[in-house]
Computed example of a mutant assay.
Amino acid sequence: MAALACERVWVDRARFNDAECKYYESLSKGTANNSQCTLVSEIAKAREHIKNSLEKMDGIATLAASPVSSDAMDRIATLEKENNDLRKIVEDLKSLCLESQKRITVLEENIAGKSNGSVATAPVVIAAIAKKADADDDDDGVDLFASDSEDESAEAARIREERLAAYAAKKSKKPALIAKSSLVLDVKPWDDETDLKLMEVEIRKITTDGLLWGASKFVPVAFGIKKLSISCVVEDDKVSIDWLTEEIEKQEDYVQSVDVAAFNKI
């Protein structure tokens, strides 16, 4: 036995071969079973899909075969009627717009033609009137209605003279436009001890035709010194701005200088 143990001999090889064959057979059977299960599931899914498709087709056929309700038909008829009415209204509006455009075009052409015609025929009318006047002057025949025409021409001349006189009187009564200016004057005192209220009183004593004093206020300048800001309205033809500033600067006890802060035409 010791000698056999040392030999390199596989005594149970047949048993191991049988076991290996059985193992691979079991593996092949398991793979076949798995494939069979997968195929069966796919077939079941296909059958379910076909069944669902057939049921949907049956439902569609049923809906197509079933009659539409009367309410739906009434609503469809109402919508069709409203659609036809709207189309008719749109067509009427379109035709009205086209007709209006045509009328406007015709009116514009007529106005343009009349304007051109009046301009073109004015010299012709003037020449005809002059020719008729010359013919009347050169006519030596007897006019049985001369007295009536003379009376009518005298009456027309009198009416014309009256109208001209009335127009001239109305125009003379119309007031002429008076040009005025609005000023804001800044009057600066000598120092902070100057009595600004008394200075304003002295400035307002300057009066003349066409000068109207307005509101005033005291505006701080610096270091406690204030200036007088006073507004006025002057008529340009009667009061000069230079003259007014010179008159204010004559108040030498109060006024150091005068500046025009704002100037507007009225």
Rank of each mutant, 00 (worst) to 15 (best):
Y167V: 10
V142W: 14
N116I: 02
K174H: 05
D242M: 07
I129W: 14
G141M: 02
D236Y: 00
V233F: 03
D151M: 07
W243H: 07
G214Y: 03
K226N: 15
A127R: 10
K205G: 04
D140Y: 02
V184N: 10
D140S: 09
D136R: 11
D151W: 02
W213Y: 03
A169W: 12
K170L: 13
V187D: 02
S172D: 13
W213K: 08
I126K: 11
V142D: 13
K227D: 09
L228V: 06
P220I: 08
K238M: 11
L211Q: 04
D136A: 14
G141F: 07
E193G: 12
S149T: 06
G224R: 12
V125G: 08
D237V: 04
A169R: 08
S181I: 00
T194M: 10
D209F: 09
S149N: 08
I178R: 15
K171S: 04
R158L: 08
V219M: 15
S229P: 04
G210Y: 02
T207P: 08
L185P: 00
I206V: 08
D191K: 06
L196H: 08
C232E: 02
V142T: 09
T194S: 15
D195W: 09
A179F: 07
S149E: 08
E155P: 01
D134A: 15
V125W: 04
E235N: 08
G224I: 00
K180F: 00
V221Y: 15
N116W: 00
S181Q: 03
D192W: 12
E155I: 03
T208S: 14
E161R: 14
I203Y: 01
A222G: 10
G117M: 06
I178W: 09
D148R: 05
K174E: 07
I241C: 04
S149K: 14
S149M: 13
K131M: 12
Y167K: 13
A165P: 05
A127E: 15
D237W: 02
L196G: 09
A165T: 05
M199D: 03
K217G: 12
A215C: 07
L177F: 04
E162G: 13
S149I: 07
A166Q: 14
K217P: 02
V119P: 06
A122P: 02
K171H: 01
A176N: 14
R158E: 05
E200Y: 03
A157R: 13
D236L: 00
A133F: 13
V124M: 10
D242G: 05
T208I: 01
S240T: 03
D237C: 07
V234N: 01
K180Y: 00
I129Q: 13
G224A: 03
A215S: 13
V219F: 14
V219K: 13
D137P: 00
A166F: 09
D138M: 08
D139S: 09
R160P: 00
A166Y: 11
K205I: 01
F218Y: 15
V221D: 15
I241S: 06
M199V: 01
E235Y: 01
D192Y: 13
S115C: 10
D136F: 10
D137V: 06
R204C: 05
V221A: 15
